[in-house]
């Protein structure tokens, strides 16, 4: 690592109002789709018997779509608390990895800021932030501003779903269930591609599928990601020694 690179890296963790606003605007298109998911959640939660206030509070405080949908499956007169906690933890465990991958740029920040921006970390804004870092651009504005956009529209969509949920009772027929999948895939395909990355991705995909098939539910993301990370760790160190 040269000094030049070190000073460049130091600038990448910049975070100010202008970068946050820019991040907000960059995540706006995907956030509009998030309204639809939010509405679908609002409708599903109503059908599962939650009160209107509980539903909006859940979206505002939990802000994790997949885990929220899964929690509805467990909702009823007697909610199995431990199973609920385990399910939410397993589905959201990928946040642990996201936090870890962001740590090189979060560690220079003061703790309040560091943990503050993580409040709104989710798949889309994290992926955009990581892409920015890998291209040598500051990414924390995308994480924070983009996260605020996603959070606002998730809560707004949830609330709209209480009243107009029937309009999006079948988002899959409009292809809307594929928005996040296509978005994340575009991030993967748009990133650095070489033999090393392709092998890492292949191992991650293989491990994820094996875990999906044979390991406890919701473990596949963590298993696949760590498998890919380990390939990168060992392959990387060999490169370094040469």
């Amino acid at each position: 690592m040269t000094n030049e690179m070190a000073s460049e890296e130091a600038a990448l963790h910049r975070l100010d109002g202008a970068l946050t606003w820019q991040g907000f605007r960059e995540l706006l298109p995907i956030s509009l789709f998030v309204i639809v998911f939010g509405a679908a959640f609002g409708l599903a939660a109503t059908q599962a018997g939650l009160s209107d206030a509980s539903i909006v509070i859940m979206s505002a405080l939990v802000f994790a779509g997949a885990a929220q949908f899964a929690s509805l499956e467990l909702w009823g007169p007697h909610i199995p608390l431990f199973t609920m906690m385990l399910t939410v933890f397993a589905i959201n465990a990928r946040h642990l990895l996201m936090g870890a991958t962001l740590s090189p740029w979060l560690q220079p920040l003061k703790p309040a800021k560091r943990y503050g921006v993580m409040l709104v970390a989710s798949d889309a804004n994290w992926a955009m932030a990581m892409q920015a870092f890998s291209q040598g651009r500051p990414g924390l504005g995308l994480l924070l501003g983009g996260g605020i956009a996603l959070w606002s529209f998730w809560v707004l969509g949830t609330w709209l779903g209480l009243y107009f949920g029937n309009a999006v009772s079948n988002p899959a027929s409009l292809g809307l269930d594929m928005v996040m999948g296509c978005f994340l895939l575009a991030m993967v395909v748009g990133s650095e591609k070489n033999l090393r990355m392709l092998v890492i991705w292949a191992v991650a995909a293989g491990a994820s599928l094996l875990a999906y098939r044979y390991l406890p539910e919701n473990s596949h993301v963590v298993v696949g990601a760590i498998a890919g990370g380990l390939v990168g760790l060992f392959w990387g160190s060999r490169d370094h020694e040469h």
């Binding site: 990895l97 991958t101 990355m197 995909a205 994820s208 498998a227 990370g229």
Partner: peptide, 15 residues
Amino acid sequence: FIHAMSGSVLVALLA
């Protein structure tokens, strides 16, 4: 490790 893992999270989610 972190660099390899960040792409892998997405791939593992998508597979």
